[in-house]
Simulated assay, not measured.
Amino acid sequence: MCRWMAYFGDPLPVEELLFRPQHSLIDQSLHSRLGATTTNGDGFGIGWYGDGPRPAVFKSIDPAWNDRNLRELAGQVSTRLFFDHVRASTGSAVQRSNCHPFRHDQWLWMHNGSIADFGLLKRDLVLAIEPALFSDLEGSTDSETLFFLALSFGLAEDPVRAVERTVGLVEDVAARHGVADPVQMTVATTDGSSMWCFRYSTAGRTRSLFYSTGVAELRALHPELEVLRELGDESRLVVSEPLRDLPDAWHEVPESSWGVVRPGADDLQPFRPIRPAA
């Protein structure tokens, strides 16, 4: 499996997110505490938004802890919306096109988890991708297939319903092939304005996911932390594992839930897959 982190808020240097925290994603790439694997060294990727609507991505098949270019880049880039992912392959090739986050137009997508028996289900799933999108599918992962299915089901118009339909399709195809408990996922996706996160598995035993306490509350709880003075009140992190051992700083995303982070009030709601109509 993998580990990921998503940041939304005032512009912040990437190195503050990626290298400075006690249990940063760089540390998690070597010493994951809550993941299915301790080491996540099968490549990494970062995605961020600058002045334009289309995000930038930087990916590599090198381990995140051993990439000097990543450290150079992190010291020079500040961003208001940042995705970071360290990969532990569940069977697909270690190649750049299989590294997260995946990008299409202004959208980014990253995933931790797997589709059970993906090789068996893959043909039926990829044939459900909108033909106009199919040529943009670059890699061989179940994660990218989920992304392009969500795009096909209207991610740009209604992200939650699109992901619910995507998961419903996977579960429907799996049932027809006799595959039990097919979906295991935590997902983050964004259009550059809002960020949606999902935690769901068919078996109801989903990998870990946490969101940060509001910054104003954290400042009151931990006035000694200088980094909190650099964050605006809208800033929010969603992470596979807490980035530092700080009392009351993190809340576990409930099982079978989705949340949206955006300017103003955030939201957290139940996630319910939608099966295809008969």
Score class of each variant (00 low, 15 high):
residue 262 R to Y: 00
residue 98 N to W: 02
residue 110 M to D: 08
residue 29 S to L: 05
residue 74 A to M: 09
residue 199 R to F: 01
residue 104 H to I: 03
residue 237 L to C: 13
residue 99 C to H: 08
residue 23 H to L: 01
residue 126 V to P: 06
residue 61 I to Y: 01
residue 243 L to V: 00
residue 269 Q to K: 15
residue 46 I to M: 10
residue 17 L to G: 00
residue 70 L to V: 02
residue 202 T to K: 03
residue 209 L to E: 00
residue 98 N to L: 02
residue 10 D to F: 00
residue 241 E to L: 01
residue 270 P to E: 12
residue 267 D to W: 10
residue 66 N to M: 08
residue 196 W to F: 13
residue 226 E to I: 05
residue 12 L to I: 15
residue 223 P to E: 11
residue 95 Q to P: 05
residue 205 R to F: 07
residue 104 H to T: 04
residue 106 Q to R: 15
residue 275 R to K: 14
residue 125 L to D: 07
residue 67 D to M: 01
residue 94 V to P: 05
residue 232 G to M: 06
residue 224 E to T: 08
residue 271 F to H: 05
residue 249 A to F: 09
residue 130 E to G: 04
residue 275 R to Y: 12
residue 22 Q to M: 01
residue 35 G to F: 01
residue 18 L to P: 01
residue 278 A to P: 15
residue 195 M to F: 11
residue 41 G to F: 03
residue 31 H to L: 11
residue 138 E to A: 15
residue 263 P to D: 11
residue 90 T to F: 01
residue 269 Q to D: 12
residue 234 E to H: 10
residue 218 L to K: 01
residue 156 A to G: 13
residue 197 C to I: 12
residue 158 D to S: 14
residue 206 T to G: 06
residue 91 G to D: 10
residue 124 D to E: 15
residue 196 W to H: 15
residue 11 P to F: 08
residue 78 S to W: 02
residue 141 T to Q: 10
residue 216 A to C: 03
residue 30 L to S: 07
residue 225 L to G: 02
residue 49 Y to W: 15
residue 32 S to E: 04
residue 17 L to K: 02
residue 178 G to Q: 11
residue 102 F to D: 10
residue 138 E to L: 14
residue 271 F to D: 04
residue 188 A to C: 13
residue 277 A to N: 11
residue 103 R to Q: 15
residue 177 H to M: 08
residue 266 D to Y: 05
residue 62 D to R: 14
residue 150 A to L: 07
residue 38 T to I: 12
residue 92 S to I: 00
residue 132 A to G: 13
residue 257 S to I: 05
residue 226 E to V: 09
residue 16 E to T: 01
residue 254 P to T: 06
residue 65 W to R: 04
residue 98 N to C: 03
residue 118 F to S: 08
residue 137 L to C: 14
residue 153 F to C: 05
residue 247 P to M: 11
residue 1 M to L: 11
residue 77 V to H: 06
residue 204 G to D: 10
residue 45 G to I: 04
residue 174 A to I: 09
residue 66 N to F: 04
residue 205 R to N: 13
residue 85 H to S: 12
residue 253 V to N: 03
residue 183 V to K: 02
residue 83 F to K: 06
residue 250 W to H: 06
residue 270 P to H: 13
residue 193 S to M: 07
residue 176 R to D: 14
residue 33 R to G: 11
residue 179 V to H: 08
residue 163 V to C: 13
residue 52 G to S: 14
residue 71 R to A: 15
residue 152 S to L: 03
residue 31 H to T: 10
residue 77 V to N: 06
residue 66 N to T: 09
residue 39 T to K: 14
residue 172 D to R: 14
residue 102 F to T: 10
residue 56 A to V: 07
residue 12 L to S: 10
residue 26 I to M: 11
residue 188 A to L: 12
residue 104 H to F: 15
residue 146 L to K: 05
residue 92 S to C: 09
residue 5 M to W: 01
residue 165 R to I: 06
residue 24 S to V: 00
residue 15 E to W: 02
residue 146 L to Y: 04
residue 201 S to N: 08
residue 190 T to E: 06
residue 263 P to K: 11
residue 169 L to S: 02
